[in-house]
Amino acid sequence: MGIAHEHELHQRRRGRNIGVGLTLAAFIAIVFGLTIVKIGSGDFGAANAPEQGQVQNGN
């Protein structure tokens, strides 16, 4: 059952809740963006290097 009556407390804290929500959304966007940029710029290349070497040795 949903909340039929909005408590006065919810009204008073609406601004704060919206602010926290937007902050969390921004945090998600930043982590996602950093991941895309880091992968795109090859910052994780060093971790892949041994695998490539292994493939070459295997051939």
């Binding site: 407390l9 008073r12 804290r13 601004g15 704060r16 919206i18 602010g19 926290v20």
Partner: peptide
């Protein structure tokens, strides 16, 4: 008083 987001900021 309930602190608003601006107060924390």
């Amino acid at each position: 008083y309930d602190a608003q987001f601006g107060d924390y900021f």
